[in-house]
Design a protein around this nucleic acid. Sequence first.
RNA 1: GCGCCUGUAGCUCAGCUGGAUAGAGCAACGGACUUCUAAUCCGUAGGUCACAGGUUCGAAUCCUGUCAGGCGUGCCA
Length: 552
Amino acid sequence: MIKEQIKHLLDKCFAQGVMQGSWTAAAAGSYTVELPKHPAHGDFSTNFAMLVAGRDNKKPREVASLLAEKMARHKDLFDKVEIAGPGFVNFFVREAIWQSVVKSVCEHCYAYGSSQVGQKRKVLVEFVSANPTGPLSIGHGRQAVLGDAIARLLDATGHKVTREYYYNDAGRQMRVLGESTRARYLELLGLAAEFPEDGYQGEYIYDIARKLVAEMGDSLKETEDVTPFKEKAEQEIFANIAETLEKLDIRFDNYYNEHSLYEKGLVDDVVARLRAKGLAYDHDGAVWFKTTEFGQEQDRVIIKSTGEPTYRLPDIAYHREKLKRGFDWLVNIFGSDHIATVPDVMAGLRALGYDDSKVTVVIHQFVTLTREGNQVKMSTRKANFVTVDELFDEVGPDVVRFFFLMRKADSQLEFDLDLATKESQENPVFYVQYANARLSSIQKKANEKNISRKPLPDVVLEKLSLPEELNMLKALASYPALVEDAALDLSPHRIIFFLMDLAGQFHSYYNRHLVISDDLELTQARLWLAEALRIVFHNGLRVVGLSAPESM
RNA sequence: GCGCCUGUAGCUCAGCUGGAUAGAGCAACGGACUUCUAAUCCGUAGGUCACAGGUUCGAAUCCUGUCAGGCGUGCCA
Protein backbone atom coordinates (compact mmCIF):
# COMPACT_ATOMS: atom_id res chain seq x y z
CA MET A 1 0.00 0.00 0.00
CA ILE A 2 2.97 2.29 0.57
CA LYS A 3 4.18 1.34 -2.86
CA GLU A 4 0.79 2.30 -4.30
CA GLN A 5 0.94 5.60 -2.46
CA ILE A 6 4.26 6.41 -4.06
CA LYS A 7 2.99 5.39 -7.48
CA HIS A 8 0.05 7.70 -6.96
CA LEU A 9 2.34 10.61 -6.04
CA LEU A 10 4.48 9.92 -9.09
CA ASP A 11 1.42 10.08 -11.31
CA LYS A 12 0.56 13.45 -9.80
CA CYS A 13 4.08 14.76 -10.34
CA PHE A 14 4.04 13.46 -13.87
CA ALA A 15 0.80 15.26 -14.70
CA GLN A 16 2.07 18.41 -13.04
CA GLY A 17 5.29 18.27 -15.06
CA VAL A 18 3.32 17.89 -18.26
CA MET A 19 1.24 20.95 -17.43
CA GLN A 20 4.31 22.99 -16.56
CA GLY A 21 6.00 21.91 -19.76
CA SER A 22 8.84 20.10 -18.01
CA TRP A 23 8.23 17.01 -20.15
CA THR A 24 5.67 15.60 -22.57
CA ALA A 25 3.07 12.97 -21.83
CA ALA A 26 4.89 10.40 -23.97
CA ALA A 27 6.05 8.26 -21.08
CA ALA A 28 2.63 8.06 -19.41
CA GLY A 29 2.09 4.78 -17.61
CA SER A 30 5.50 3.35 -18.48
CA TYR A 31 7.41 4.07 -15.28
CA THR A 32 7.26 1.80 -12.26
CA VAL A 33 7.99 1.72 -8.54
CA GLU A 34 10.41 -1.01 -7.55
CA LEU A 35 11.98 -2.55 -4.51
CA PRO A 36 15.73 -2.10 -4.83
CA LYS A 37 17.89 -5.07 -3.90
CA HIS A 38 20.48 -2.95 -2.22
CA PRO A 39 19.63 -1.13 1.03
CA ALA A 40 21.75 1.84 -0.05
CA HIS A 41 19.24 2.38 -2.84
CA GLY A 42 16.43 3.12 -0.46
CA ASP A 43 13.13 1.41 0.28
CA PHE A 44 11.65 2.13 -3.11
CA SER A 45 12.96 3.48 -6.35
CA THR A 46 11.60 4.59 -9.67
CA ASN A 47 12.89 4.55 -13.22
CA PHE A 48 10.67 7.56 -13.96
CA ALA A 49 13.45 9.91 -15.01
CA MET A 50 15.14 7.47 -17.38
CA LEU A 51 11.93 6.68 -19.19
CA VAL A 52 10.67 10.26 -19.36
CA ALA A 53 14.06 11.51 -20.54
CA GLY A 54 14.29 8.67 -23.05
CA ARG A 55 11.01 9.59 -24.72
CA ASP A 56 11.76 13.30 -24.74
CA ASN A 57 15.43 13.14 -25.58
CA LYS A 58 16.33 14.90 -22.33
CA LYS A 59 19.03 14.21 -19.77
CA PRO A 60 17.82 11.64 -17.21
CA ARG A 61 19.56 13.24 -14.26
CA GLU A 62 17.96 16.59 -14.97
CA VAL A 63 14.52 15.06 -15.06
CA ALA A 64 15.43 13.16 -11.92
CA SER A 65 16.34 16.27 -9.99
CA LEU A 66 13.07 17.94 -10.93
CA LEU A 67 11.16 14.88 -9.80
CA ALA A 68 13.17 14.41 -6.63
CA GLU A 69 12.51 17.98 -5.62
CA LYS A 70 8.75 17.57 -6.02
CA MET A 71 8.66 14.25 -4.22
CA ALA A 72 10.87 15.37 -1.33
CA ARG A 73 8.14 17.79 -0.26
CA HIS A 74 6.21 14.90 1.23
CA LYS A 75 8.08 14.98 4.49
CA ASP A 76 5.40 12.93 6.23
CA LEU A 77 6.40 9.99 4.02
CA PHE A 78 10.07 10.36 3.24
CA ASP A 79 13.24 10.91 5.21
CA LYS A 80 15.07 11.65 2.01
CA VAL A 81 14.81 11.35 -1.73
CA GLU A 82 18.02 10.73 -3.67
CA ILE A 83 19.16 10.59 -7.25
CA ALA A 84 21.51 7.76 -8.09
CA GLY A 85 23.09 5.81 -10.91
CA PRO A 86 21.89 6.53 -14.43
CA GLY A 87 18.86 8.45 -13.12
CA PHE A 88 17.09 6.38 -10.50
CA VAL A 89 15.18 8.30 -7.89
CA ASN A 90 15.40 6.50 -4.56
CA PHE A 91 12.97 6.96 -1.71
CA PHE A 92 13.84 6.47 1.93
CA VAL A 93 10.62 6.03 3.85
CA ARG A 94 10.29 7.32 7.42
CA GLU A 95 10.51 4.70 10.13
CA ALA A 96 7.17 5.74 11.58
CA ILE A 97 5.46 4.63 8.38
CA TRP A 98 6.92 1.16 8.73
CA GLN A 99 6.15 0.97 12.42
CA SER A 100 2.51 1.73 11.75
CA VAL A 101 2.31 -1.50 9.75
CA VAL A 102 1.90 -3.29 13.07
CA LYS A 103 -1.41 -1.52 13.53
CA SER A 104 -2.60 -2.31 10.09
CA VAL A 105 -1.77 -6.01 10.44
CA CYS A 106 -3.26 -6.41 13.89
CA GLU A 107 -6.43 -4.51 13.06
CA HIS A 108 -7.14 -6.71 10.05
CA CYS A 109 -5.83 -9.78 11.82
CA TYR A 110 -6.81 -12.95 9.96
CA ALA A 111 -8.18 -10.86 7.11
CA TYR A 112 -4.81 -9.18 6.59
CA GLY A 113 -3.74 -10.00 3.05
CA SER A 114 -7.25 -10.68 1.84
CA SER A 115 -8.60 -8.32 -0.74
CA GLN A 116 -11.38 -7.70 -3.20
CA VAL A 117 -9.37 -7.37 -6.42
CA GLY A 118 -11.28 -10.34 -7.75
CA GLN A 119 -14.47 -8.28 -7.65
CA LYS A 120 -16.48 -11.44 -7.05
CA ARG A 121 -15.62 -12.71 -10.51
CA LYS A 122 -16.88 -16.25 -10.88
CA VAL A 123 -13.97 -18.54 -11.50
CA LEU A 124 -14.01 -22.27 -12.00
CA VAL A 125 -10.84 -24.10 -11.09
CA GLU A 126 -10.70 -27.52 -12.66
CA PHE A 127 -8.06 -29.89 -11.39
CA VAL A 128 -7.11 -33.51 -10.70
CA SER A 129 -9.80 -34.76 -13.11
CA ALA A 130 -8.29 -38.24 -13.00
CA ASN A 131 -10.52 -41.03 -14.22
CA PRO A 132 -11.15 -43.56 -11.44
CA THR A 133 -8.80 -46.22 -12.76
CA GLY A 134 -6.42 -46.28 -9.83
CA PRO A 135 -5.09 -44.48 -6.78
CA LEU A 136 -3.79 -40.95 -7.24
CA SER A 137 -0.19 -40.89 -8.37
CA ILE A 138 2.44 -38.42 -7.33
CA GLY A 139 1.73 -36.40 -10.46
CA HIS A 140 -1.92 -36.14 -9.50
CA GLY A 141 -0.79 -35.13 -6.06
CA ARG A 142 1.12 -32.18 -7.38
CA GLN A 143 -1.86 -31.14 -9.41
CA ALA A 144 -4.25 -31.54 -6.51
CA VAL A 145 -2.14 -29.40 -4.21
CA LEU A 146 -1.41 -26.81 -6.88
CA GLY A 147 -5.06 -26.50 -7.85
CA ASP A 148 -6.23 -26.28 -4.29
CA ALA A 149 -3.66 -23.63 -3.36
CA ILE A 150 -4.61 -21.59 -6.42
CA ALA A 151 -8.27 -21.89 -5.47
CA ARG A 152 -7.49 -20.71 -1.95
CA LEU A 153 -5.52 -17.74 -3.24
CA LEU A 154 -8.31 -16.74 -5.60
CA ASP A 155 -10.75 -17.12 -2.78
CA ALA A 156 -8.67 -14.83 -0.56
CA THR A 157 -8.57 -12.17 -3.24
CA GLY A 158 -12.29 -11.80 -3.65
CA HIS A 159 -13.06 -14.30 -6.40
CA LYS A 160 -16.05 -16.55 -6.28
CA VAL A 161 -14.38 -19.92 -6.63
CA THR A 162 -15.80 -23.28 -7.66
CA ARG A 163 -13.55 -26.34 -7.56
CA GLU A 164 -14.47 -28.95 -10.06
CA TYR A 165 -13.32 -32.50 -10.78
CA TYR A 166 -14.13 -33.69 -14.29
CA TYR A 167 -14.15 -37.40 -15.00
CA ASN A 168 -15.31 -40.03 -17.40
CA ASP A 169 -16.55 -43.41 -16.26
CA ALA A 170 -17.79 -44.64 -19.63
CA GLY A 171 -14.78 -44.87 -21.89
CA ARG A 172 -12.28 -47.44 -22.98
CA GLN A 173 -10.11 -46.98 -19.88
CA MET A 174 -12.98 -47.96 -17.65
CA ARG A 175 -13.82 -51.00 -19.74
CA VAL A 176 -10.24 -52.19 -19.39
CA LEU A 177 -10.51 -51.55 -15.67
CA GLY A 178 -13.59 -53.76 -15.50
CA GLU A 179 -11.87 -56.48 -17.48
CA SER A 180 -8.81 -56.29 -15.27
CA THR A 181 -10.96 -56.64 -12.19
CA ARG A 182 -12.82 -59.60 -13.61
CA ALA A 183 -9.54 -61.32 -14.46
CA ARG A 184 -8.29 -60.91 -10.90
CA TYR A 185 -11.64 -62.04 -9.54
CA LEU A 186 -11.54 -65.26 -11.55
CA GLU A 187 -7.91 -65.73 -10.65
CA LEU A 188 -8.75 -65.51 -6.94
CA LEU A 189 -11.44 -68.14 -7.47
CA GLY A 190 -8.80 -70.38 -9.01
CA LEU A 191 -10.38 -70.18 -12.44
CA ALA A 192 -8.70 -69.64 -15.76
CA ALA A 193 -8.53 -65.94 -16.48
CA GLU A 194 -7.18 -63.97 -19.36
CA PHE A 195 -5.66 -60.74 -18.15
CA PRO A 196 -6.13 -57.93 -20.70
CA GLU A 197 -2.97 -57.02 -22.52
CA ASP A 198 -3.12 -53.37 -21.51
CA GLY A 199 -4.82 -54.10 -18.19
CA TYR A 200 -4.18 -52.39 -14.87
CA GLN A 201 -1.60 -54.47 -13.08
CA GLY A 202 -1.60 -52.70 -9.73
CA GLU A 203 -2.04 -54.57 -6.49
CA TYR A 204 -5.17 -52.54 -5.75
CA ILE A 205 -7.10 -54.50 -8.38
CA TYR A 206 -6.59 -57.61 -6.25
CA ASP A 207 -7.96 -55.73 -3.25
CA ILE A 208 -11.10 -54.88 -5.16
CA ALA A 209 -11.42 -58.43 -6.48
CA ARG A 210 -11.03 -59.77 -2.95
CA LYS A 211 -13.90 -57.58 -1.81
CA LEU A 212 -16.02 -58.88 -4.65
CA VAL A 213 -15.26 -62.45 -3.65
CA ALA A 214 -16.12 -61.68 -0.06
CA GLU A 215 -19.40 -60.00 -0.97
CA MET A 216 -20.53 -62.05 -3.94
CA GLY A 217 -18.76 -65.35 -3.64
CA ASP A 218 -18.42 -67.00 -7.05
CA SER A 219 -21.81 -65.77 -8.26
CA LEU A 220 -20.19 -63.58 -10.91
CA LYS A 221 -18.00 -66.26 -12.44
CA GLU A 222 -20.27 -66.83 -15.43
CA THR A 223 -21.03 -63.14 -16.01
CA GLU A 224 -20.11 -61.96 -19.47
CA ASP A 225 -20.94 -58.33 -18.76
CA VAL A 226 -18.05 -56.39 -17.20
CA THR A 227 -20.40 -53.80 -15.74
CA PRO A 228 -20.57 -55.20 -12.19
CA PHE A 229 -16.77 -55.38 -12.09
CA LYS A 230 -16.38 -51.92 -13.52
CA GLU A 231 -18.88 -50.43 -11.12
CA LYS A 232 -17.36 -52.05 -8.08
CA ALA A 233 -13.89 -50.93 -9.12
CA GLU A 234 -15.06 -47.39 -9.79
CA GLN A 235 -16.80 -47.14 -6.49
CA GLU A 236 -13.82 -48.45 -4.53
CA ILE A 237 -11.30 -46.35 -6.38
CA PHE A 238 -13.32 -43.17 -6.07
CA ALA A 239 -13.67 -43.76 -2.36
CA ASN A 240 -9.92 -44.15 -2.15
CA ILE A 241 -9.28 -40.98 -4.16
CA ALA A 242 -11.67 -38.99 -2.00
CA GLU A 243 -9.93 -40.27 1.12
CA THR A 244 -6.53 -39.30 -0.24
CA LEU A 245 -7.77 -35.82 -1.10
CA GLU A 246 -9.38 -35.50 2.31
CA LYS A 247 -6.01 -36.17 3.95
CA LEU A 248 -4.62 -33.28 1.94
CA ASP A 249 -7.58 -31.17 3.09
CA ILE A 250 -8.87 -30.87 -0.45
CA ARG A 251 -12.58 -30.87 -1.20
CA PHE A 252 -14.36 -30.29 -4.46
CA ASP A 253 -17.56 -28.36 -4.89
CA ASN A 254 -18.54 -30.43 -7.85
CA TYR A 255 -17.74 -33.67 -9.63
CA TYR A 256 -18.69 -33.32 -13.28
CA ASN A 257 -19.35 -36.53 -15.19
CA GLU A 258 -18.49 -36.44 -18.86
CA HIS A 259 -21.39 -38.75 -19.48
CA SER A 260 -23.91 -36.04 -18.59
CA LEU A 261 -22.72 -34.04 -21.59
CA TYR A 262 -23.96 -36.83 -23.85
CA GLU A 263 -27.23 -37.18 -21.98
CA LYS A 264 -27.96 -33.51 -22.46
CA GLY A 265 -27.07 -33.71 -26.14
CA LEU A 266 -24.31 -31.17 -25.68
CA VAL A 267 -21.75 -33.25 -27.53
CA ASP A 268 -23.97 -33.72 -30.56
CA ASP A 269 -24.77 -30.05 -30.47
CA VAL A 270 -21.11 -29.12 -30.78
CA VAL A 271 -20.76 -31.32 -33.85
CA ALA A 272 -23.93 -29.90 -35.39
CA ARG A 273 -22.77 -26.34 -34.87
CA LEU A 274 -19.33 -27.03 -36.27
CA ARG A 275 -20.90 -28.64 -39.31
CA ALA A 276 -23.24 -25.69 -39.75
CA LYS A 277 -20.25 -23.36 -39.80
CA GLY A 278 -18.43 -25.57 -42.24
CA LEU A 279 -15.77 -26.37 -39.63
CA ALA A 280 -16.46 -30.10 -39.45
CA TYR A 281 -16.53 -32.61 -42.29
CA ASP A 282 -16.60 -36.36 -43.00
CA HIS A 283 -13.54 -38.17 -44.23
CA ASP A 284 -12.50 -41.87 -44.15
CA GLY A 285 -15.61 -42.63 -42.14
CA ALA A 286 -14.61 -40.25 -39.36
CA VAL A 287 -15.69 -36.70 -38.52
CA TRP A 288 -12.92 -34.10 -38.59
CA PHE A 289 -12.63 -30.67 -37.02
CA LYS A 290 -10.97 -28.08 -39.25
CA THR A 291 -8.33 -27.04 -36.73
CA THR A 292 -6.20 -25.81 -39.62
CA GLU A 293 -8.57 -22.83 -39.66
CA PHE A 294 -7.22 -22.01 -36.21
CA GLY A 295 -3.53 -22.14 -36.93
CA GLN A 296 -2.87 -25.83 -36.43
CA GLU A 297 -0.89 -27.96 -38.81
CA GLN A 298 -3.51 -30.58 -39.37
CA ASP A 299 -7.19 -31.20 -38.87
CA ARG A 300 -8.22 -33.41 -35.98
CA VAL A 301 -10.65 -36.31 -35.72
CA ILE A 302 -13.51 -35.65 -33.31
CA ILE A 303 -15.58 -38.76 -34.07
CA LYS A 304 -13.81 -41.99 -34.94
CA SER A 305 -15.01 -44.24 -37.75
CA THR A 306 -16.32 -46.53 -34.99
CA GLY A 307 -18.74 -43.77 -34.04
CA GLU A 308 -17.01 -43.07 -30.74
CA PRO A 309 -15.91 -39.51 -30.07
CA THR A 310 -12.27 -38.73 -29.40
CA TYR A 311 -11.36 -37.03 -26.14
CA ARG A 312 -11.26 -33.56 -27.68
CA LEU A 313 -14.93 -33.46 -28.60
CA PRO A 314 -16.37 -33.83 -25.09
CA ASP A 315 -13.55 -31.58 -23.85
CA ILE A 316 -14.77 -28.83 -26.15
CA ALA A 317 -18.37 -29.42 -25.12
CA TYR A 318 -17.36 -29.35 -21.45
CA HIS A 319 -15.52 -26.05 -21.71
CA ARG A 320 -18.31 -24.48 -23.67
CA GLU A 321 -20.68 -25.65 -20.96
CA LYS A 322 -18.53 -24.14 -18.25
CA LEU A 323 -18.75 -20.75 -19.96
CA LYS A 324 -22.48 -21.18 -20.45
CA ARG A 325 -22.78 -21.88 -16.75
CA GLY A 326 -21.74 -18.27 -16.27
CA PHE A 327 -18.13 -18.46 -15.19
CA ASP A 328 -16.04 -15.42 -16.03
CA TRP A 329 -12.74 -17.22 -15.80
CA LEU A 330 -11.86 -20.85 -16.32
CA VAL A 331 -8.64 -21.98 -14.72
CA ASN A 332 -7.48 -25.45 -15.72
CA ILE A 333 -4.65 -27.27 -14.08
CA PHE A 334 -3.20 -29.82 -16.48
CA GLY A 335 -0.19 -32.07 -16.44
CA SER A 336 2.20 -31.52 -19.31
CA ASP A 337 1.13 -34.86 -20.81
CA HIS A 338 -2.27 -33.36 -21.54
CA ILE A 339 -0.97 -30.26 -23.20
CA ALA A 340 -2.16 -31.44 -26.61
CA THR A 341 -5.80 -30.87 -25.72
CA VAL A 342 -5.30 -27.18 -25.04
CA PRO A 343 -5.13 -25.86 -28.61
CA ASP A 344 -8.04 -28.10 -29.61
CA VAL A 345 -10.26 -26.82 -26.82
CA MET A 346 -9.31 -23.21 -27.52
CA ALA A 347 -10.00 -23.66 -31.21
CA GLY A 348 -13.30 -25.32 -30.39
CA LEU A 349 -14.42 -22.45 -28.21
CA ARG A 350 -13.49 -19.87 -30.78
CA ALA A 351 -15.21 -21.88 -33.50
CA LEU A 352 -18.39 -21.83 -31.43
CA GLY A 353 -18.18 -18.11 -30.88
CA TYR A 354 -16.86 -18.05 -27.32
CA ASP A 355 -14.07 -15.96 -25.92
CA ASP A 356 -11.15 -18.30 -25.28
CA SER A 357 -9.24 -15.60 -23.42
CA LYS A 358 -11.44 -16.49 -20.48
CA VAL A 359 -9.53 -19.75 -20.22
CA THR A 360 -6.18 -19.94 -18.48
CA VAL A 361 -4.37 -23.24 -18.50
CA VAL A 362 -1.70 -23.87 -15.91
CA ILE A 363 0.54 -26.62 -17.22
CA HIS A 364 2.63 -28.24 -14.57
CA GLN A 365 5.67 -30.32 -15.46
CA PHE A 366 6.26 -33.80 -14.22
CA VAL A 367 7.25 -34.91 -10.79
CA THR A 368 10.28 -37.10 -10.72
CA LEU A 369 10.65 -39.15 -7.61
CA THR A 370 14.02 -40.20 -6.34
CA ARG A 371 14.66 -42.81 -3.72
CA GLU A 372 18.13 -43.81 -2.64
CA GLY A 373 19.51 -41.94 -5.58
CA ASN A 374 17.43 -43.81 -8.13
CA GLN A 375 14.66 -42.31 -10.15
CA VAL A 376 11.37 -44.15 -9.85
CA LYS A 377 9.47 -44.41 -13.10
CA MET A 378 5.75 -43.99 -13.00
CA SER A 379 2.98 -45.53 -15.03
CA THR A 380 -0.58 -46.17 -13.98
CA ARG A 381 -0.78 -49.29 -16.06
CA LYS A 382 2.26 -50.92 -14.58
CA ALA A 383 2.53 -51.77 -10.95
CA ASN A 384 5.61 -49.75 -10.04
CA PHE A 385 4.11 -46.30 -9.72
CA VAL A 386 4.21 -44.41 -6.49
CA THR A 387 0.98 -43.12 -5.09
CA VAL A 388 0.15 -40.19 -2.87
CA ASP A 389 -1.00 -42.71 -0.27
CA GLU A 390 2.44 -44.31 -0.27
CA LEU A 391 3.91 -40.87 0.27
CA PHE A 392 1.72 -40.51 3.35
CA ASP A 393 3.31 -43.64 4.77
CA GLU A 394 6.52 -41.66 5.04
CA VAL A 395 5.68 -37.98 5.42
CA GLY A 396 2.75 -35.97 6.70
CA PRO A 397 0.28 -33.99 4.61
CA ASP A 398 1.96 -30.65 5.33
CA VAL A 399 5.26 -31.94 4.00
CA VAL A 400 3.59 -33.29 0.88
CA ARG A 401 1.79 -30.00 0.30
CA PHE A 402 4.81 -27.84 0.96
CA PHE A 403 7.11 -29.84 -1.31
CA PHE A 404 4.61 -29.75 -4.15
CA LEU A 405 4.22 -25.99 -3.77
CA MET A 406 7.91 -25.20 -3.48
CA ARG A 407 8.45 -25.12 -7.22
CA LYS A 408 6.67 -23.08 -9.83
CA ALA A 409 4.42 -25.13 -12.08
CA ASP A 410 6.74 -24.71 -15.07
CA SER A 411 9.58 -26.49 -13.35
CA GLN A 412 9.97 -30.18 -13.12
CA LEU A 413 9.77 -31.13 -9.52
CA GLU A 414 12.20 -33.51 -7.97
CA PHE A 415 10.73 -35.10 -4.90
CA ASP A 416 13.60 -36.60 -2.98
CA LEU A 417 12.04 -39.03 -0.57
CA ASP A 418 15.24 -39.50 1.38
CA LEU A 419 15.40 -35.77 1.97
CA ALA A 420 11.71 -35.38 2.77
CA THR A 421 11.77 -38.23 5.28
CA LYS A 422 15.19 -38.99 6.70
CA GLU A 423 16.25 -35.40 7.10
CA SER A 424 12.93 -34.08 8.21
CA GLN A 425 14.71 -32.03 10.87
CA GLU A 426 16.12 -29.75 8.19
CA ASN A 427 12.81 -29.61 6.46
CA PRO A 428 11.76 -26.17 5.23
CA VAL A 429 8.18 -27.00 6.19
CA PHE A 430 9.12 -27.24 9.82
CA TYR A 431 11.38 -24.23 9.54
CA VAL A 432 8.40 -22.06 8.63
CA GLN A 433 5.95 -23.70 10.99
CA TYR A 434 8.44 -23.47 13.81
CA ALA A 435 8.50 -19.71 13.39
CA ASN A 436 4.76 -19.67 13.91
CA ALA A 437 5.07 -21.95 16.94
CA ARG A 438 7.78 -19.80 18.50
CA LEU A 439 5.69 -16.68 18.04
CA SER A 440 2.73 -18.35 19.66
CA SER A 441 5.00 -19.47 22.44
CA ILE A 442 6.12 -15.92 23.11
CA GLN A 443 2.52 -14.83 23.63
CA LYS A 444 1.98 -17.73 26.02
CA LYS A 445 5.06 -16.80 27.95
CA ALA A 446 3.83 -13.23 28.26
CA ASN A 447 0.52 -14.49 29.60
CA GLU A 448 2.32 -16.63 32.17
CA LYS A 449 4.19 -13.56 33.32
CA ASN A 450 0.96 -11.61 33.47
CA ILE A 451 2.07 -9.22 30.80
CA SER A 452 -0.80 -8.32 28.56
CA ARG A 453 -0.53 -6.23 25.47
CA LYS A 454 -1.70 -2.67 26.05
CA PRO A 455 -4.03 -1.09 23.49
CA LEU A 456 -2.08 -0.09 20.40
CA PRO A 457 -2.56 3.68 20.79
CA ASP A 458 -0.68 3.44 24.10
CA VAL A 459 2.24 1.52 22.63
CA VAL A 460 5.47 3.25 21.65
CA LEU A 461 6.05 1.62 18.29
CA GLU A 462 9.04 3.94 17.71
CA LYS A 463 10.91 1.44 19.87
CA LEU A 464 10.97 -0.89 16.88
CA SER A 465 14.00 0.73 15.33
CA LEU A 466 16.51 -2.09 14.84
CA PRO A 467 17.35 -2.78 11.20
CA GLU A 468 16.10 -6.35 11.68
CA GLU A 469 12.79 -5.05 13.00
CA LEU A 470 12.35 -2.56 10.20
CA ASN A 471 13.14 -5.22 7.62
CA MET A 472 10.51 -7.52 9.05
CA LEU A 473 8.01 -4.66 9.08
CA LYS A 474 8.75 -4.01 5.44
CA ALA A 475 8.13 -7.66 4.66
CA LEU A 476 4.82 -7.53 6.53
CA ALA A 477 3.86 -4.43 4.57
CA SER A 478 4.50 -6.18 1.28
CA TYR A 479 2.35 -9.20 2.11
CA PRO A 480 -1.05 -8.05 0.77
CA ALA A 481 0.40 -7.16 -2.62
CA LEU A 482 2.18 -10.49 -2.67
CA VAL A 483 -1.06 -12.41 -2.13
CA GLU A 484 -2.64 -10.42 -4.93
CA ASP A 485 0.22 -11.11 -7.33
CA ALA A 486 0.43 -14.78 -6.41
CA ALA A 487 -3.31 -15.16 -6.95
CA LEU A 488 -3.52 -13.34 -10.26
CA ASP A 489 -0.38 -15.09 -11.53
CA LEU A 490 -1.69 -18.42 -10.25
CA SER A 491 1.68 -18.86 -8.53
CA PRO A 492 1.37 -20.21 -5.01
CA HIS A 493 5.11 -20.87 -4.82
CA ARG A 494 5.62 -17.18 -4.24
CA ILE A 495 3.89 -17.45 -0.88
CA ILE A 496 6.20 -20.31 0.06
CA PHE A 497 9.30 -18.30 -0.76
CA PHE A 498 8.00 -15.31 1.15
CA LEU A 499 7.36 -17.45 4.21
CA MET A 500 10.80 -19.05 4.09
CA ASP A 501 12.42 -15.66 3.84
CA LEU A 502 10.39 -14.16 6.67
CA ALA A 503 11.03 -17.23 8.83
CA GLY A 504 14.75 -16.76 8.26
CA GLN A 505 14.54 -13.14 9.34
CA PHE A 506 12.54 -14.01 12.41
CA HIS A 507 14.66 -16.94 13.63
CA SER A 508 17.74 -14.78 13.32
CA TYR A 509 16.07 -11.96 15.24
CA TYR A 510 14.80 -14.35 17.88
CA ASN A 511 18.26 -15.64 18.60
CA ARG A 512 19.63 -12.17 18.99
CA HIS A 513 17.00 -10.22 20.86
CA LEU A 514 14.55 -10.85 23.64
CA VAL A 515 10.96 -9.86 23.11
CA ILE A 516 10.13 -9.95 26.80
CA SER A 517 12.65 -7.94 28.76
CA ASP A 518 12.91 -5.52 31.68
CA ASP A 519 12.26 -2.57 29.41
CA LEU A 520 8.49 -2.34 29.63
CA GLU A 521 7.96 -0.01 26.69
CA LEU A 522 10.21 -2.09 24.47
CA THR A 523 8.50 -5.28 25.57
CA GLN A 524 5.10 -3.86 24.62
CA ALA A 525 6.30 -2.79 21.20
CA ARG A 526 7.97 -6.12 20.51
CA LEU A 527 5.01 -8.13 21.74
CA TRP A 528 2.90 -6.33 19.18
CA LEU A 529 5.49 -6.92 16.50
CA ALA A 530 5.49 -10.61 17.44
CA GLU A 531 1.73 -10.64 17.19
CA ALA A 532 1.83 -9.04 13.75
CA LEU A 533 4.38 -11.61 12.62
CA ARG A 534 2.32 -14.45 14.01
CA ILE A 535 -0.72 -13.22 12.12
CA VAL A 536 1.14 -13.03 8.83
CA PHE A 537 2.70 -16.49 9.27
CA HIS A 538 -0.69 -17.85 10.12
CA ASN A 539 -2.35 -16.19 7.13
CA GLY A 540 0.46 -17.12 4.75
CA LEU A 541 0.43 -20.76 5.76
CA ARG A 542 -3.34 -21.01 5.64
CA VAL A 543 -3.75 -19.27 2.29
CA VAL A 544 -1.91 -22.13 0.60
CA GLY A 545 -3.54 -24.77 2.78
CA LEU A 546 -0.74 -25.47 5.24
CA SER A 547 -1.41 -25.79 8.94
CA ALA A 548 -0.13 -23.18 11.37
CA PRO A 549 0.68 -25.09 14.55
CA GLU A 550 0.91 -23.12 17.79
CA SER A 551 3.32 -25.60 19.26
CA MET A 552 5.61 -28.24 17.86
C1' G B 1 10.82 -32.83 -38.48
C1' C B 2 7.26 -29.47 -35.77
C1' G B 3 4.96 -27.34 -31.03
C1' C B 4 5.22 -26.29 -25.65
C1' C B 5 8.38 -26.27 -21.13
C1' U B 6 13.25 -26.12 -18.98
C1' G B 7 18.80 -24.83 -18.81
C1' U B 8 21.21 -19.71 -12.90
C1' A B 9 26.61 -22.06 -7.07
C1' G B 10 28.61 -29.27 -6.25
C1' C B 11 22.78 -30.60 -5.72
C1' U B 12 17.49 -28.70 -5.63
C1' C B 13 15.54 -24.16 -7.05
C1' A B 14 13.98 -18.46 -6.57
C1' G B 15 14.70 -14.03 -9.24
C1' C B 16 8.60 -9.42 -8.24
C1' U B 17 7.43 -9.91 -16.05
C1' G B 18 13.58 -4.82 -18.54
C1' G B 19 16.73 -2.12 -13.53
C1' A B 20 21.73 -0.64 -10.04
C1' U B 21 27.08 -5.00 -7.08
C1' A B 22 23.20 -12.39 -8.79
C1' G B 23 19.79 -14.88 -4.26
C1' A B 24 18.00 -18.94 -0.88
C1' G B 25 17.93 -23.93 0.97
C1' C B 26 20.61 -28.38 1.07
C1' A B 27 25.58 -30.57 1.00
C1' A B 28 31.07 -28.95 3.03
C1' C B 29 34.02 -26.58 6.90
C1' G B 30 34.37 -23.77 11.83
C1' G B 31 31.58 -21.93 16.07
C1' A B 32 26.90 -20.84 19.76
C1' C B 33 22.11 -23.98 24.58
C1' U B 34 22.29 -20.91 33.25
C1' U B 35 17.56 -16.08 28.73
C1' C B 36 10.49 -16.21 25.37
C1' U B 37 11.11 -23.99 22.04
C1' A B 38 18.78 -25.62 19.49
C1' A B 39 13.01 -28.41 14.52
C1' U B 40 17.14 -22.48 15.89
C1' C B 41 21.34 -19.13 15.18
C1' C B 42 26.48 -16.99 13.70
C1' G B 43 30.72 -17.32 10.36
C1' U B 44 33.52 -19.29 5.82
C1' A B 45 33.38 -20.93 0.82
C1' G B 46 30.94 -21.46 -3.75
C1' G B 47 28.92 -18.04 -10.59
C1' U B 48 31.37 -17.07 -18.18
C1' C B 49 22.99 -16.90 -15.50
C1' A B 50 23.97 -23.46 -21.54
C1' C B 51 26.40 -20.98 -26.09
C1' A B 52 26.53 -17.02 -30.07
C1' G B 53 24.50 -12.74 -31.98
C1' G B 54 20.67 -8.71 -31.67
C1' U B 55 17.20 -4.85 -29.47
C1' U B 56 18.54 0.07 -25.59
C1' C B 57 20.40 4.37 -21.19
C1' G B 58 20.33 -0.93 -18.91
C1' A B 59 19.34 -8.07 -20.44
C1' A B 60 19.45 -13.99 -16.22
C1' U B 61 14.75 -11.63 -17.98
C1' C B 62 12.64 -9.58 -24.77
C1' C B 63 14.02 -11.26 -30.31
C1' U B 64 16.88 -14.73 -33.65
C1' G B 65 19.98 -18.94 -34.14
C1' U B 66 22.71 -23.24 -31.97
C1' C B 67 23.31 -27.13 -28.24
C1' A B 68 21.23 -30.26 -24.18
C1' G B 69 17.02 -32.46 -21.30
C1' G B 70 11.51 -33.22 -20.52
C1' C B 71 6.47 -33.51 -22.54
C1' G B 72 3.51 -33.63 -26.67
C1' U B 73 2.89 -34.24 -31.90
C1' G B 74 -3.08 -40.95 -32.19
C1' C B 75 -9.38 -42.48 -35.26
C1' C B 76 -5.36 -43.09 -26.67
C1' A B 77 -6.94 -39.59 -22.34
